[in-house]
Amino acid sequence: MLTQKQHELLCFIDDRLKDSGVSPSFEEMKEALGLKSKSGIHRLISALEERDFIRRLPNRARALEVLKLPEGGVLEITPSNVVSLRPETPVREVVSNPAPAPAANNDVLEIPLHGRIAAGAPIEAMEGQSALSVPAALLGPGEHYALEVSGDSMIDAGILDGDFALIQKTEVARDGEIVVALIHEEEATLKYLRKDGGNVQLDPANAAYEPQRYGAGEVRIQGKMAGLLRRY
């Protein structure tokens, strides 16, 4: 049983592979289906993979293979907006004896790379159009983006200058979590969050730096740290 969007995405991927031999990008899939974010595409692809309609080839960010397509039946729109195949509908195998889908920790996802974030004195976090390929095992549920770390104020937390912080989008965080904090709607920094009554304290993980204290209205949470990527 496929939802309407899953069916649309499967057909779009298959058409593109037949036309060019190359999987469409997540941005192209997002535009083709009229979605607002790539996280919706990630969920659709995962659902199609679980149902053995497609598989993702390991260690390649844009390698999708269509394993089977619905064929010969009449699609029905159910009240829950689910597209299902009639019981007698045959399934056309695109490849014979397909290899089993790779484990999730071999999958690679592309997430937006939004410039640099300070692990020191606050600097501007720039919005960018680049993407970063990240092992899916480093990410949890939800929508994510990446920021390149600048500075050494979080060094005792194992976060070094030049690392890529993997951030889960959220506007709320618990005391003690590492967050992306936007200060005065202008500058962003990566720090431990400490709540002190009506104030917010942003703590570094380096004794050479002092904690930063602000009123609650001066700081807005833009995400919390979900993982770290380091290139050697």
Rank of each mutant, 00 (worst) to 15 (best):
L10A: 02
R16H: 04
R16E: 13
S20R: 11
P24I: 06
F26I: 14
E27Y: 05
M29S: 03
K30P: 01
K30I: 03
E31R: 10
K36V: 06
A47T: 04
E50K: 11
F53K: 01
R55G: 00
L57T: 06
L67M: 08
L69Q: 08
L75Q: 07
T78I: 07
S84A: 08
R86W: 02
R86A: 15
T89W: 01
P90T: 12
E93I: 05
E93Q: 15
V95A: 10
A103S: 11
A104C: 02
L109C: 03
L109A: 03
I111S: 01
L113C: 06
G115Q: 09
A118Y: 01
G120R: 06
P122Q: 06
I123K: 00
E124K: 00
A125D: 09
A125T: 08
G128K: 09
G128S: 15
G128A: 14
Q129D: 14
L132H: 03
L132R: 02
S133G: 04
V134G: 02
A137T: 10
A137H: 13
L138M: 12
H144I: 11
A146H: 10
L147E: 07
M154P: 08
D156V: 07
A157K: 08
I159E: 02
D163G: 11
D163S: 13
F164S: 11
L166S: 00
L166I: 14
A173V: 13
G176Q: 04
V179W: 00
V180Y: 02
I183L: 14
E187N: 12
Y192K: 04
Y192R: 10
N199Q: 12
N199V: 00
V200W: 01
Q201M: 14
A208D: 15
Y214F: 15
E218V: 03
R220P: 10
R220I: 12
I221S: 01
K224N: 02
